[in-house]
Design a protein around this nucleic acid. Structure first.
Length: 1146
RNA sequence: AGUCCCGUAGCUCAGUUGGUUAGAGCGCUACACUGAUAAUGUAGAGGUCCGCGGUUCAACUCCGCGCGGGACUACCA
């Protein structure tokens, strides 16, 4: 039995990090953990793929710690937790990064400057630029994930699964081509992503002409009610716009269903003609700011500043629904069904008139609502047969010359339109227009004014987005795009979402739930270069379409095309269907430009070209449950073992990103959730609460942090400082605190254990001493330990890592170290190796060993070292690592709440007595005779008896005296119990409270004796029982007394001669121990002590020589008159200086 | 603008179904203790529990309206 518990000089968590990593590598611990413990079946985890073209930040440590901890916990519980790493390799950020690196823009790609081929090649290398860093971080932070065969989204097999998924949707009719209103830069000729729109400086204040237009209602059955009680021939609705150039494309008006509207009689301020108009009631004052309803309509003269008005009627918006109106500007005739009033949820009364002008071709809301109610958009037919909005892609009103002749003849009013055709809607689009020239907006408004169709014209400043490349205003413009009909699955997605366990719950029901309720179809199209191509081929007349769902299918179709003579060669000719090896799938590339070169043949024998779009990268990542398995080409049979996930975790910013796409695809393809439990964490901010950014220089580098502190304190800090979904204000000082407070204390506790266990040769070879044979304090810490195991397991199972960590930390620092070890120190040093000592070692060992297993998911490095140090010496477990050891189970029979209560009392009373000592300046080494404790009831006395010795030893007092409840020496205080009285007496509480508090000592005593008391409150009799009050013994006159809640304790501070001698003896013990230590003696060395004979100490040393000797391992303690030698020390005891010599025996 | 999160001591955070002295750690001040010692204990100072209303006998806690910080989605007359 040569093995000893390793003892360390210092706690170096950074070094431990490295040592343990080495051991894990040597033993292949991670792979073993996945394989060896799997008796409970699979626990499925999905890794959200990071993009490797960015440098990992500290927030990644946060998210990954959360992922890792749960997976490690489940592993310890006996599940097989496979976790495959992955890389997100497509997408705009990567393209933009490459553009920047190469100094090019999107327009250059596919030109002479750079081919698509070269650009994509650059993307492919660039995207994996920092994989080394990522792998390094993964390793160092202790994130266990299988990086042997990560899934990579640009891999042909991955893309093949995506195509298969798309084809499933396509075949069921859920993939369709439509158009959507997107931000579009006419100057740059390209659509803009929301990302580009959010670049700083994009939104700028501009001055635009706004107007309130008057839409004339058509009198029919629906509108008849509006024409009653009026003195004008017409009724108009007023609508405000900041973009008058969209008015010619108006095809509807929107009102709020529940908004109250009013019909008002007034005048057109420009023409002076009487008008009857409709606006929202709330906006009346905004429409007639200078007016006065008291003004008589008949007094009005054209040009008057004040517009008199009169409210004729009010009604809710829903009554307006379906009413028809005349076209405002008759340049082009739309399809039938236009010019209707409809109701829309987005209508507010915050500005404008409460009536919204709808131009479906130029607004997202407009487009949506027009679709909902079947309102046709204003569409023109061009010479080439295509249809489009009234504004062309360069930002000009469509020139008549571009329009289809027949269309012009049937639909266009040339006489009114000719003055406006071919003008830019924003002057910025035409460089030849001098600055300051009138805009088309102004001309349109002037025209409306002449026609009496406008109520007010104003210049207004508002913020408007600009293209970050050209600096010119952006247009919201309808663009072609492919959509997934996610709206068809909305209900099902909501249903399935309700079965998911969200942490925090509110993200699931709130942010995610609301998002699902307002779901729109998923716009899949991206007009970019580096991404998964849309596998749809279409004939030029767009009559035939084909969606390809696998490489095999593509190969077959190309073969047909080669046969038809459309292609010379099959790029997939060497591909062997069914061979899923990487080599086989590297024989071709599905990316652009190669996929664009593939021309297929339609069933009718026509050429088919690929739709040039790429798909949204979020589809890539959302499809990972399928694509990481290359489903269904591989893993078809065992797919149910890897889907859905039991657990995922990412930042809350992924709610509409990865969380949504996972959920959507799983719902649509498998009618299942993609994940059952989810933790979404918040942001990591700097210590001042600012967002971290490279620009501000406040970003924290995870590598240097781990190097300095080690991963464990970093992980522990991040998880325990705040709930993961709260933002974390990251402060290095916090990591340091965790290191000192938690790891330092745990390390100290272990060091203490190791020191004495080695001295006593404790190796846990003895049989476990029955718990009920161990002393009270052992049973107490064992009880707490089992409570802790129960709680921690519950927290982990509830995915609450923060509470788990806090509970462990609290146990270690407060209970184990600060109470159990502190009170038990004497059991470990000196004395015989008897059952009591063995029990002490076994108890402390069990605590440390259990803590190592409880905390291993959170702090995998140090806990493994602790576990190994304990285990290698004792062989208690077969497992070589804590991560292979089973998670502890609690033993309910060892939990004794009563015992925990009594120890709580002991702790409180001890600290109260120490407080009293401090108050009267009597140091703890000075023994005192007794304490007195009032006993409120019998059970209290029994409780305290059990812990009496602990308390007395801790506070250095000889005995305890219980004061009987009825004793007259106690001064009592009485307080009402609101909890019992409140429900019964309600409003009388205040007065009852006053009455109870003012009871005198005699009354209280009488109350206690009889058990009841009656008081009168305003003539009402209130009967009190002892349940209804709390009686505290507050004071014992003539004694030093302390109170804490119900507890009261008194201290006898008389120091007798005998006590004083004992106190002096203790002072000597203390001084001698210090000298031993200064002299560097081993804890087992025997010594001889000579003390100068001095009046002040003589009696004390004489009487307590053997006590001093036993405490300091002194074989003799002598009083001497003179000293020789050079090791004479002077010690000061109560201001008296005494010489002393301590020497080691040979 | 909408949805969600957060707001408690100088700082970081607890605060269980509403119950009357709102807690801990860090930091600060003072004093102790010391064979775990780069620890530890005790005491002190430090709070309009973001504000205003409401419900209630009683609100840090429940409801409403705001304010401040943050995230996401949108940008619309």
């Amino acid at each position: 039995m040569g093995k000893r518990f390793p003892e360390y000089k210092t706690l170096d968590l950074s070094q431990i990090n490295k040592d343990i990593l080495k051991i894990w590598d040597e033993n292949d611990t991670f792979h073993k953990s996945v394989r060896e413990l799997n008796d409970k079946g699979e626990f499925v985890f999905f890794e959200g793929p990071p993009s490797a073209n960015g440098i990992p930040g500290i927030h990644h440590v946060m998210a990954r710690t959360i992922k890792d901890a749960i997976c490690r916990f489940k592993t310890q519980c006996g599940f097989e937790v496979k976790r495959k790493a992955g890389w997100d390799t497509h997408g705009l950020p990567i393209e933009l990064g490459v553009e920047q690196a190469l100094g090019i823009t999107k327009e250059d790609i596919g030109t002479e400057k750079i081919s698509i081929e070269d650009f994509n090649k650059a993307c492919r290398t660039d995207v994996m630029r920092y994989t080394d860093l990522w792998e390094d971080l993964t390793r160092k932070m202790g994130y266990w994930i299988n990086m042997d065969h990560p899934y990579v989204t640009y891999d042909s097999r991955y893309i093949e699964t995506l195509w298969w998924l798309l084809k499933q949707l396509y075949s069921k009719g859920y993939l369709y081509k439509g158009y959507t209103i997107q931000p579009y830069s006419p100057a740059a000729g390209t659509g803009l992503s929301s990302h580009e729109l959010n670049l700083p400086g994009c939104y700028r204040d501009v001055k635009d002409t706004t107007c309130i237009a008057l839409f004339k209602l058509i009198r029919d059955k629906k509108s008849e009610f509006l024409f009653k009680n009026i003195d004008t021939d017409t009724v108009h609705m007023m609508a405000w716009t900041t973009t008058p150039w969209t008015l010619p494309s108006n095809t509807a008006l929107a009102v709020g269903e529940d908004i109250i509207y009013i019909k008002v009689r007034s005048f057109n301020p420009y023409s002076g003609n009487p008008v009857t108009v409709i606006i929202a009631k709330d906006l009346l004052k905004a429409m007639f700011p200078d007016s006065d309803s008291a003004g008589e309509l008949s007094d009005y003269k054209t040009g008057n500043k004040k517009l008199p008005y009169k409210i004729l009627e009010e009604f809710p918006g829903r009554k307006l629904h379906g009413i028809n109106y005349e076209q405002l500007i008759d340049w082009v005739k739309p399809d039938p069904g236009a010019f209707k009033v409809v109701t829309g949820e987005f209508v507010t009364t915050e500005d404008g008139t409460g009536i919204v002008h709808i131009a479906p071709t130029f607004g997202a809301d407009d487009y949506r609502i027009s679709k909902e109610f079947g309102i046709p958009p204003m569409i023109v037919k061009r010479k080439d047969g295509s249809f489009g909005p009234m504004v062309d892609k360069k930002g000009y009103m469509v020139p008549i010359a571009d329009l289809d002749d027949r269309f012009v003849k049937d639909r266009v009013n040339i006489s009114t339109y000719k003055d406006f055709e071919a003008r830019p809607v924003k002057n910025e689009y035409d460089a030849s227009i001098p600055e300051g020239s009138e805009t088309i907006d102004v001309d349109i408004v002037v025209m409306l004014k002449q026609q009496g169709k406008v109520f007010r014209i104003e210049k207004q400043i508002h913020s408007y987005p600009h293209c970050w490349r050209t600096d010119k205003p952006v247009l919201y413009y309808p663009l072609d795009a492919w959509f997934i009909r996610t709206t068809a699955f909305r209900e099902r997605m909501i249903e399935l979402n309700n079965t998911i366990n969200w942490k925090p719950q509110s993200t699931g029901t709130g942010r995610f739930g609301k998002w699902l309720e307002n779901l729109v179809d998923w716009n899949l199209s991206r007009t970019r270069f580096w991404g998964t191509p849309l596998p749809i081929w279409v004939t030029e007349d767009r009559k035939e379409e084909m969606c390809i769902g696998s490489a095999h299918e593509l190969k077959t179709e190309i073969e047909k095309s080669v046969k038809a003579g459309f292609m010379k060669k099959n790029p997939l000719e060497n591909f062997v269907p069914g061979d899923n090896s990487q080599e086989n799938y590297e024989k071709f590339d599905l990316h652009r430009p190669y996929v664009d070169e593939i021309v297929l043949v339609s069933p009718k024998g026509k050429k088919m070209f690929r739709e040039p779009d790429l798909i949204d990268v979020w589809f890539d990542s959302g499809a990972m449950p399928y694509a990481q398995a290359h489903y269904p080409f591989e893993n078809k049979e065992n797919f149910h073992d890897m889907f859905p996930a039991d657990y995922i975790a990412e930042g809350v910013d992924q709610t509409r990103g990865w969380f949504f796409t996972l959920h959507a695809i799983a719902t649509m393809i498998s009618d299942s959730v993609a994940f059952k439990n989810i933790i979404s964490n918040g942001l990591v901010l700097d210590k001042n609460g600012n967002k971290m950014s490279k620009r501000l220089g406040n970003a924290v580098d995870p590598f240097t942090t781990i190097e300095e502190y080690g991963s464990d304190p970093l992980r522990w800090y991040m998880l325990t400082n705040a709930q993961p979904w709260d933002n974390l204000k990251f402060d290095m000082a916090g990591i340091d605190e965790v290191r000192r407070k938690f790891f330092g204390t745990l390390y100290n506790t272990y060091s203490f254990f190791a020191l004495y266990a080695n001295v006593d040769n404790f190796r846990f070879t003895e049989r476990d001493i029955l718990v009920n044979m161990r002393p009270e304090i052992d049973r107490w810490i064992i009880s707490l330990l089992n409570s802790l195991v129960r709680e921690v397991r519950k927290c982990y199972e509830d995915y609450d890592l923060t509470r788990a960590g806090r509970a462990i930390q609290d146990f270690v620092t407060e209970n184990l170290s600060n109470w159990y070890v502190r009170l038990n120190r004497k059991r470990y040093w000196g004395g015989d190796y008897d059952n009591d000592k063995i029990a002490a070692y076994q108890t402390l060992f069990a605590c440390l060993e259990t803590v190592s297993r409880l905390a291993a998911p959170l702090a995998p490095f140090y806990m493994d070292q602790l576990f190994r140090d304990l285990n290698n010496t004792t062989g208690r477990h077969n497992e070589e690592s804590v991560h292979l050891a089973i998670f502890p189970e609690h033993d309910e029979s060892l939990i004794d709440k009563n015992l925990e209560d009594r120890m709580d009392i002991a702790q409180k009373i001890s600290s109260m007595i120490l407080g009293l000592r401090r108050k009267v300046s009597i140091r703890v080494r000075q023994p005192l005779a007794k304490i007195m404790i009032p006993v409120p009831d019998k059970s209290f006395k029994a409780k305290f008896e059990a812990v009496k010795d602990l308390v007395l030893a801790e506070v250095n007092v000889k005995e305890v005296e219980y004061i009987d409840d009825t004793s007259a020496v106690l001064v009592k205080k009485i307080k009402p119990n609101f909890k019992t009285l409140g429900p019964r007496y309600g409003k009388l509480m205040k007065e009852i409270s006053n009455a109870v508090m003012s009871l005198g000592q005699d009354e209280i005593t009488a109350f206690e004796n009889s058990g009841t008391h009656q008081i009168d409150i305003n003539g009402q009799r209130v009967a009190l029982t002892l349940e209804d009050v709390e009686i505290i013994s507050e004071d014992i006159p003539g004694w030093q007394v302390a109170n804490d809640g119900k507890l009261t304790v008194a201290l006898d501070i008389t120091v007798t001669e005998e006590l004083r001698y004992e106190g002096i003896a203790r002072e000597f013990v203390n001084r001698i121990q210090n000298i031993r230590k200064e002299n560097g003696y081993d804890v087992t060395d025997k010594i001889t002590v000579n003390i100068e004979d001095h009046d002040f100490v003589r009696e004390a040393v004489k009487r307590h020589a053997s006590y001093i000797g036993s405490q300091t391992l002194a074989t003799t303690v002598n009083l001497v008159n003179s000293f020789s030698g050079n090791n004479i020390r002077e010690v000061e005891i109560d201001d008296v200086i005494v010489k002393i010599v301590v020497s080691r025996n040979n």
